[in-house]
């Protein structure tokens, strides 16, 4: 079973890389770019298990190590 975890900065935290990317996009002519947030993407492959259990374990991983709750939020997609 494959799960995807997206980690990104909380909305309240300034994202210096995202800001730099946004400025770069604007400067090459993508004038409609309103905001960019840069984050991390993990693809996790699990051995056979129930979807509920997989979701529980991966959420735990995301809380414990994949993200830093002080500055980041995450989303788990199975």
């Amino acid at each position: 079973m494959k799960a995807r975890v997206y980690v990104s900065f909380k909305d309240s935290v300034l994202d210096p890389q995202g800001k730099a990317v946004k400025n770069a996009l604007l400067s090459i002519g993508y004038e409609k770019v309103k905001d960019v947030r840069q984050g991390k993407f993990f693809q996790i492959e699990m051995d056979d298990m129930s979807e509920a259990e997989a979701k529980r374990q991966i959420t735990e991983m995301a809380e414990k190590i994949l993200s830093n709750p002080v500055i980041e939020k995450f989303e788990v997609i199975l």
Binding site: P16, Q17, V70
Partner: peptide
Amino acid sequence: PGAMMINKTL
């Protein structure tokens, strides 16, 4: 407490 982010100069 707290966290470290990438330097503002990138």
